[in-house]
Design a protein around this nucleic acid. Sequence first.
DNA 1: TCCATAGCCATACACCGTATGGCTGACGCT
DNA 2: AGCGTCAGCCATACGGTGTATGGCTATGGA
Lengths: 187, 187
Amino acid sequence: MAVSARRGAPLTLEEISTTALRLMDEGGVEGLSMRKLAAELDVNPMSLYHHVESKDALVRLICSTAAQRMDLPPDDGSPWQDQLRALALGYYRNALAHPAMWSHLHNHPEIIADRNLVIWQALYRILRLAGVPEPEQRRTSDVLHAFVMGYVIAGTKGHLPGDPEEIERGFDTAIRLITGGLAGWSR
Amino acid sequence: MAVSARRGAPLTLEEISTTALRLMDEGGVEGLSMRKLAAELDVNPMSLYHHVESKDALVRLICSTAAQRMDLPPDDGSPWQDQLRALALGYYRNALAHPAMWSHLHNHPEIIADRNLVIWQALYRILRLAGVPEPEQRRTSDVLHAFVMGYVIAGTKGHLPGDPEEIERGFDTAIRLITGGLAGWSR
DNA sequence: TCCATAGCCATACACCGTATGGCTGACGCT
DNA sequence: AGCGTCAGCCATACGGTGTATGGCTATGGA
């Protein structure tokens, strides 16, 4: 039904999202504009609004599907310290892949507030494994996430010294430190 | 020399900064516009550019002077653990006073990259007191700042459960945990 | 065959940051 | 006293933004 002027197929939400994400990767959230996005898709800017309610909604959509699709290490039965480190490192690497998107996400935490998200489910599982009592899980997870978030921000803005591997090692060290503190705490 | 149409005195950088900060407090960085700021000061938008190079430069100025003027606890001779907790809490409270500004700051860490800033000087002093070896100070301070930054973000976005005092107690607990880990680490 | 409607687009509005260039009046100097 | 300099301010304009509104068009179902 009235497909675009010079495109074969009609627009797809998927298509819109992926090229929008690319534009965000290249120029940050403010580097993404509906007009540029439309140009990239060879379409009139207003056509996008038939698939998306607003720019904000689009960005939110991108962020939340990325959060849902994060690929994180599965439960491999290893000690909780190792699993926690692996999870944190997984988060960190996911974030490094799309710094601008995660930057936006960290400025709008409500997007990943849903506790059914894979990250939180995995984190809670590990905390249970670590023996963190039920009522402490929320706060503990918040603290851990706060640190990971902060490290991601510092890392992606290029304000951590050393090469990437060194930075990852520093991250790992810090997580060890915190898990150490955690263990001491529950005792 | 050709003072404004309807103002007695000429504009001041101080005056510009403070009302700009107020606008940021009210509507975030994107809620601050040169036009609104000018209207607030009863002045033509372009007049601002005689005192400030750009909006970006203005925001940067506000952030860095706020960083310089942070009021933080002095060296009171108490154990490093207490001083570190006090410093972190001081940072947290400074940030809570102007969430939008600090949000911007955390997205542009280069503004507070200068290691001569009071925060870093105080932090380094405490780390020395804690016996953190010289070459480890940078990384340690980065880790600590990462956590504080993350907690501030989560806290200011209202995504930590509980009332403010409860949140502060959680923060304190977390800092204790980390300092505990730190102590165990240096041994 | 007809029509509802999905998909697309043209135009327009209100906002943004800011480049450019001109006005005005207070000051220093002779 | 006369004059030039220039700080301070402003009017206009340009190119960008998100998006409201309303109209076109071709396709699927009845």
